[in-house]
Design a protein around this nucleic acid. Sequence first.
DNA 1: ACCTGAACACCGTTCAAGT
DNA 2: ACCTGAACACCGTTCAAGT
Lengths: 201, 201
Amino acid sequence: LTGPPRRLRADARRNRARLLAEADAAFREHGADAALEGIARRAGVAIGTLYGHFPNRHALVGALLRDRHDTLFAGGDELRTAADPGQALRTWVDAVVEHAATYGGLADLFAAGAADADSELHVDCARMAAIGAALLERARDAGAVRGDVRGEDVFVLMNAAAWARTALSAEQAGRLVGITLAGMAGPAGPGTPRPSWSDPG
Amino acid sequence: LTGPPRRLRADARRNRARLLAEADAAFREHGADAALEGIARRAGVAIGTLYGHFPNRHALVGALLRDRHDTLFAGGDELRTAADPGQALRTWVDAVVEHAATYGGLADLFAAGAADADSELHVDCARMAAIGAALLERARDAGAVRGDVRGEDVFVLMNAAAWARTALSAEQAGRLVGITLAGMAGPAGPGTPRPSWSDPG
DNA sequence: ACCTGAACACCGTTCAAGT
DNA sequence: ACCTGAACACCGTTCAAGT
């Protein structure tokens, strides 16, 4: 459903492979918002050929991540039987953040993909969130996480840390993950009173 | 240094005000990456006039935020003498996140401004970080925060939560802040072993 | 001293015409 | 069945010419 058509003409098959290779290189160098025009040019095809294979950026990124996501999700499923549920959750979040660092700006695409059911990245985002929720539940049952922590909290943390990793630095993102997971384990912090001098909207 | 020139010709003064008003409206509606061309058009001036007043997007955003930042930072300074240092830190982080929600995409501009010393937003980012660091130190002295939490951690949290607020949702960003601040208060969480199936880079 | 708007470079996307 | 590339709309940025 999401992979390449079963049988392609020889030239189409070759063009598709070249486009993916050039897109991967461009996304690694310039982030996931690299110019599609340049990708097509470097792949030696016209821009229309790129659109013929991938109707939009999400589809192109999705095709590139498919294999990586397969192994990522397989690893996530294995973690569901790990000895230490708390550590398993930590390992999962770290792996997703590390994965998201493949291309700069992936956090924005994941956020968009999670919100838009028609996005080619939507199923990937849903799976990412589901694995996080499952590992969270297990950690909660083991007493390694507070009862009021929701599955969405893990998804938000993964995405926010992924954003921080490219926007700020890898080390800082890792510290955010560590501190936040510690917060999921311990007691709740201070409340949220509105300051008189803040004027949103 | 950063404000408008002392005396402007009458028409220039009027154009500047119109540009700021239209930019504010556009940034609120379409985010901080709204098209500058459309802003100039709606302000009734040529695009060159916009560039004459503001050499780039950072300068325009910076001029719009100047007043807000003055009150934001004044409030932050007041918090340094608040009764409950832990609550003061929480109030500060919430205020910054709420402030960053003024325009979508401000987190990216803040991250860029913090990294680039030549950015018109750099001093604002530095001040934001400094206040956070000061409030953190005070909270630490009061025993409300662990000793190994750094000032940068607060800055990363503010920015990451600001990103999550526009990219995902306000409530989810608020929960991230609450959980992470709880993590700064309690003991450290689980460590960070690399999974065998993750392959970054 | 300030404004105008054409000019240039760049990008996303579509689609009629080719092979 | 697939590819081409011109075409259109759009945007950021500069700068010579105006007032």
